[in-house]
Design a protein around this nucleic acid. Sequence first.
DNA 1: CTGAAAGCGCTAACAT
DNA 2: ATGTTAGCGCTTTCAG
Lengths: 330, 330
Amino acid sequence: MVKIKDVADAAGVSTATVSRVLAQKPYVSEEVKKRVMEVVKKLNYQPNRAAQSLRANTSRLLALVVADIENPFFQRVSRAVEDTAQEVGYNVILCNTDEDPVKEKKYLDILRVENIAGIIISPTLKGLEKYKETYSHDIPMVMIDRHVRNFDVDSVLIDNVASAHNITTHLIEHGYRRIAGMFGTGSTTGSERCEGFLKALADHNIKPEKELLEYVSAKEEEGFQTAIKLFNLKKRPDAIFTSNSLLASGVVQAIRTCKLSIPNDIAFASFDDTSWAKLIDPPLTVIEQPTYEIGRTATELLIKRIANPNRPNREVILKTKLICRKSCGC
Amino acid sequence: MVKIKDVADAAGVSTATVSRVLAQKPYVSEEVKKRVMEVVKKLNYQPNRAAQSLRANTSRLLALVVADIENPFFQRVSRAVEDTAQEVGYNVILCNTDEDPVKEKKYLDILRVENIAGIIISPTLKGLEKYKETYSHDIPMVMIDRHVRNFDVDSVLIDNVASAHNITTHLIEHGYRRIAGMFGTGSTTGSERCEGFLKALADHNIKPEKELLEYVSAKEEEGFQTAIKLFNLKKRPDAIFTSNSLLASGVVQAIRTCKLSIPNDIAFASFDDTSWAKLIDPPLTVIEQPTYEIGRTATELLIKRIANPNRPNREVILKTKLICRKSCGC
DNA sequence: CTGAAAGCGCTAACAT
DNA sequence: ATGTTAGCGCTTTCAG
């Protein structure tokens, strides 16, 4: 592996000068700069990250800690984070907590040891909250998708209450009254979306029924099981709203299994516009989150915070979009 | 951050001794060993990875380079790799190439710069092949899921030809004759599975029809579009075999869209046992790959190779399992 | 069995 | 504007 000394020798300068050129520091003559860059290119010199890291006591690695890698939402966010990070010379480690606070803590410990430069995290419900100070003091952090009370870090969120209110209202305006809601436990998004859902019902004087309100683990299989249960009620709901795409997928399977027809037997709307939402028959009405924007914004905030750890925190709320297809009876 | 000198001072020994204890080197008295370990625990000392990495010219990071993070197969493999790596003190970076040789090369370059200890990779079709020597000389590698000709590294595979032959024969034995096959381009698995498929047809004197043989990008949407095309043939196939779960998902959507019934209108079998395969109605007959075993085995091979770069290469072939549910007309 | 010290590759403070 | 050099934290000879 070619090192900085090799470049320095070949260019007839000192290692300090090479370092300066590479770091774009001032006070280097144009001529020397040019000469050095040529040698760098010719020898294909690449700085040793370990040495840089040891010296600077930080790395060029970011971590994206997501709650569920199987959720298409996080897959898309992860693309954006990677793209953005690489544009500015950072690489990204992906960690999957499975909504498990223990795994989350383990990863945070690992990341600290690896001298990670910064973390983008969708925190678990009972995890980060407990030991937030421990990590946020050492490591720049940006939160996405979820809220942790009294935790002053940058965050990129959407307005879950308003979005859920919006899509629920949409169902109500199409004449549905017995609307079941299925929300994920394990994250703040589930409860916020439930809040918006209930608010929309209240706004139209619809009394929420307990048997139509489901809090479950945000997994495909749970969505399936829960939907079956709902369909077997004496009085079946006339519509369902799910708070993420994994639940939605399970519900679709259940609807097929029970041979119900959308939207006649049951109308259907969900959070998250996945690849299959427009493929099914009828296509699914959804709230689309700006997934790519979320990832990009979070990364940009993180990079800025790494550069300046004392800048004031900010909370960015991105807009969602209601995409009306046919499953809501339009 | 507490460093080795702090531990040495507190234990009244030299840094060399602490290092020896931690590395489990021989020639340290039991008593000193005990004393050092106590201090290490008390101070919660954690070696600085960057310094170790600089010194050793390698890291404690492994990379898993997958072709498609959205494929449940790779998601499961990734769990296994992480679990296994962490058991022996390695951490894992996850990289997603999207079947793009350019992205693959970019990641390999990055990984080299990051001083990665070893790589587990599902290579792209035209990528790794071209520059295999460049990387495999520097970095221990294990290949999974796919084949690269004349590339001597450890690999963990399944017998694609036999597995596809097996499930196709299963369909044939249930009386289906016009069986469509849908295979992924972009990887060797697709063509091998096609080979097994054709072999099974030949074994039963069924002439393969060109219009029933589809090579497409292994994506959900492609599966959907292609299935629609097949269903609109003057003579519709009576069965479909898909070579991965993303294609299968698309086909299911298409079957629903065209209001066909499984298995009466069309029988259906696929590679890969995903979470939804048993949920749909009727449940899907599949070839189950030992995903967790693949990840674990690959990681174990990689760790061994890192320890001993000269050990002979081996190719591990793991067994698949035909899970017969109802979609094949059983 | 243990300690002293060199050096991995890089950057930044200091010197010129 | 450029060079010299110390030192980041660790491991590993080499010496004892």
